[in-house]
Design a protein around this nucleic acid. Sequence first.
DNA 1: CTTGCCCCTGACGCAAGCGGCAGGGGTTAC
DNA 2: GTAACCCCTGCCGCTTGCGTCAGGGGCAAG
Lengths: 130, 130
Amino acid sequence: MRIGDAAAAAGTTPRALRFYEERGLLHPPARSASGQREYGPAEVARVRVIRRLLALGLTVDDLASRAHRLDLLQQDPPVRCSGSPGPDTYAPVVHARLAALDAEIARLTELRARLARHMATGGADVPAGS
Amino acid sequence: MRIGDAAAAAGTTPRALRFYEERGLLHPPARSASGQREYGPAEVARVRVIRRLLALGLTVDDLASRAHRLDLLQQDPPVRCSGSPGPDTYAPVVHARLAALDAEIARLTELRARLARHMATGGADVPAGS
DNA sequence: CTTGCCCCTGACGCAAGCGGCAGGGGTTAC
DNA sequence: GTAACCCCTGCCGCTTGCGTCAGGGGCAAG
């Protein structure tokens, strides 16, 4: 299967697949004699995993840092963090993302509160530094 | 006062002042014979107002859209949204910002919940489209 | 007059995840 | 053989609020 069909099968675009490859989320696939990328069902599955994780709020760099573990998510009961099966799961990066999301949510919530207060009080307050 | 001193007095940098001017938040200031910008205390005060509003989460475009009202915030009891003194206060853009912040907070909260659930369930769920 | 600090304009860089275009070649069907 | 797609690489664009040169001139002190 060529890149267009593979991308369609995974619900995305050729551009995205090349991008994932460039960023190390996909291994460079086999090439036809004329240099065209050849994909099989396994890579399509992997792309689907990648897109699910991205949609969950993980970043490309998060995935790249654990790219060698992406395949595990396709077959096994995935991500299992119970019983700490070694230092090689996605648990660390997921925890880091959760923390980052919490921090961002807290920051925006604080901002929202200050902005609302600003309107209520007439803006006489000065936001605390940083 | 030249731009460096004015920027320092307002707690920012020359680059930021030129940027605000370029984006319409500051009126083009007087220039010395050799073309250097001349600022007075009124501009410095205005810059401080701008920085407070930016720190509150408003965007440069928010401020630019109401730039002609920025001066009011320096002297009068500012932003007063009670009694709707006309269509020219900051209330509309502040409300829009509050809504945008709420939407963003909701989005991140939803994302965080899905990511947490993903870890708990082993990732068998598929994020809803959109 | 020269040193040294400040100012000017104009333009690129950054972060994220691709979209889109340009220029050139492959592949399949009629 | 040729039309109609598809693919290749490489590169700019988008968004925010400036930071950071680069290249050239100003201004006060010694």
